[in-house]
Amino acid sequence: MNAQVLQAVWAVVLLTGTGTVLGLVVGIVVKLFGAEIDPRIEEIEGLLPGANCGGCGFAGCVAFAEALAHGKAEPTACPSNSAAAVERICALLGVAAGTRNPKVAVVLCGGDNAKARQAALYNGVVDCKDAMLVAGGAKGCRFGCLGLGTCARACPFAAIEITAAGIARVHREFCTGCGKCVAACPRNLIRLVPADAPVHVLCSSPEKGAAKRGVCEVACIGCRKCVKASGEDHITMNGFLAVVNYDNPPTAEVAAVCPTGCLVATTPPAETETADPAREMVHA
């Protein structure tokens, strides 16, 4: 047996021995001093979306799962979870499921490139926040969607699309209402609304009607027709802008009275629990 082979054998023996000894030490220490980890935490974590969106108010899905296991949070506090998963978490924890009003994000602007005027050609960083640095944004309307996708990149569920016409649109079936996009939009156009809200005013400009019409075909011109048709309780006026009262929304039919088409009716999102596409998209 030459020296080199002997050296190799020694190395194997030495490392295996060290590993075994250290493993034994770790095992003994854990056995003697290790804290019990609630096995439910891992199980709950598996039932959470795993997007770490922060919508629950905790630092991420693991932190939320721990809070749930210790009874410090409600299972419904996660805005992104499907109803089925919430039910299973409740069963696991042995608590009754509270009621939850699911919310979705809506971009309150309807002025895409076909309907709203651009003030100039913007040639710079493709991001709304950066575009705002160049004379406040190249869109004719100072309040409209810039369509450069800051919200879409912020969405952990890939629920926001920048359409071919250059405006952000929320895919309600994927939106979980976590609110990341609300914080991302530099023009504050995105709002979380009850998922069953029947109508939305897709305009956020407080300017006078004539000024808005000059730059956008689908602006709210402040004509108050919708307010008269539905009543002051359902739609209120904020200066020259109609605002849906989401606590007491009007019926979908009121959308028909809007002369510019900025009052838009929505259909409730299809029930998507079985497929759970949001999670698939995240993990895809």
């Binding site: 960083v125 640095l133 160049v134």
Partner: peptide, 12 residues
């Protein structure tokens, strides 16, 4: 590269 725009964003 739009370096100044990047830096302006960062400063903000």
């Amino acid at each position: 590269r739009p370096l100044v725009q990047h830096l302006r964003r960062a400063k903000q």
